[in-house]
Simulated assay, not measured.
Amino acid sequence: MSRAFVREVEGGEAYEDLPDRPISPHANLVTPTGLARMDEEIETLERRLADARASGDKAETARLSRDLRYWSHRRSTAEVVPPPSDNSQVRFGSRVTFERSDGRTQTYHIVGEDEADPSKGSISYASPLAQALMGKQVGDVIAVAHGEAEITGID
């Protein structure tokens, strides 16, 4: 293709059209802690966006604007789910401990998609592991990657 018909990007225009972050098709369930974190994130983004605009940083303004749109939308659609009052079975908000067939013991807190951080012990309720755990009780066995796991505790 001839370069004669391709518009070159000048001074930050590429940043002005950043695509929006994808929104999950799942219900936006959150814990009370997750809702508070959303509010903190929005407040931080608003402050940083004002600073970026004041300094004339177009790239940072575009990035922060996109992130603020995402979090504002997620906040407006958030459905707060209180912690479970009954630990007889796994529910949204449960902290589940299970022992894998290879002997490893793991504990995960089942939370909203935006709250999930498996490296810190929380998984999204929409994840395959959480879906396998939902509704199960202590002593139940579930299939997990490369084996099985027995639920040993629900808090």
Score class of each variant (00 low, 15 high):
79 E>A: 07
85 S>M: 11
141 V>R: 12
37 R>M: 14
9 V>T: 14
84 P>W: 00
61 T>R: 03
106 Q>G: 11
112 G>I: 00
48 R>G: 05
20 D>C: 00
16 E>F: 03
59 A>D: 08
31 T>M: 03
95 R>N: 11
25 P>K: 15
105 T>S: 12
134 M>K: 08
79 E>W: 01
108 Y>N: 08
67 D>R: 13
43 E>T: 13
137 Q>F: 14
41 E>F: 02
35 L>G: 07
111 V>I: 08
139 G>R: 06
84 P>K: 07
48 R>H: 14
46 E>D: 14
72 S>G: 11
9 V>D: 12
77 T>D: 09
154 I>Y: 05
90 V>M: 10
108 Y>K: 04
121 G>H: 06
126 A>Y: 00
31 T>G: 11
21 R>N: 11
7 R>D: 13
126 A>Q: 02
123 I>P: 01
39 D>I: 14
139 G>W: 03
30 V>W: 01
18 L>S: 03
7 R>T: 13
97 T>W: 03
129 L>P: 02
137 Q>K: 15
67 D>S: 12
98 F>Y: 13
150 E>P: 01
29 L>K: 11
123 I>C: 05
113 E>A: 09
14 A>P: 02
28 N>M: 02
102 D>E: 02
57 D>P: 00
31 T>R: 06
11 G>S: 11
72 S>K: 12
144 V>T: 06
42 I>K: 14
74 R>C: 02
10 E>W: 03
63 R>M: 12
148 E>N: 14
97 T>C: 09
68 L>E: 04
14 A>H: 01
139 G>S: 06
33 T>C: 05
146 H>M: 09
91 R>F: 12
57 D>L: 00
55 S>A: 15
71 W>N: 14
68 L>G: 05
48 R>L: 15
68 L>W: 00
134 M>F: 13
69 R>C: 08
47 R>K: 15
81 V>M: 07
60 E>T: 02
74 R>G: 05
58 K>T: 15
14 A>W: 03
71 W>F: 14
136 K>Q: 09
92 F>S: 08
101 S>A: 12
17 D>I: 05
37 R>G: 03
46 E>G: 15
55 S>V: 04
21 R>S: 12
113 E>N: 10
148 E>I: 09
87 N>E: 04
60 E>I: 04
34 G>D: 01
13 E>A: 11
56 G>P: 00
64 L>R: 02
15 Y>W: 10
108 Y>D: 09
133 L>Y: 02
80 V>D: 01
96 V>S: 08
50 A>E: 13
110 I>W: 07
44 T>H: 05
99 E>Y: 07
131 Q>F: 07
57 D>S: 08
119 S>L: 10
46 E>F: 01
109 H>L: 14
56 G>M: 00
49 L>Y: 05
30 V>L: 08
150 E>C: 06
124 S>Y: 05
50 A>S: 13
149 A>D: 02
34 G>H: 01
13 E>Y: 05
110 I>M: 03
42 I>F: 03
85 S>G: 15
121 G>Q: 11
34 G>R: 00
84 P>G: 11
60 E>V: 03
41 E>T: 15
57 D>G: 09
70 Y>I: 10
65 S>K: 06
108 Y>R: 13
106 Q>T: 15
126 A>F: 01
17 D>R: 11
66 R>I: 07
111 V>D: 01
151 I>M: 08
53 R>N: 12
82 P>E: 09
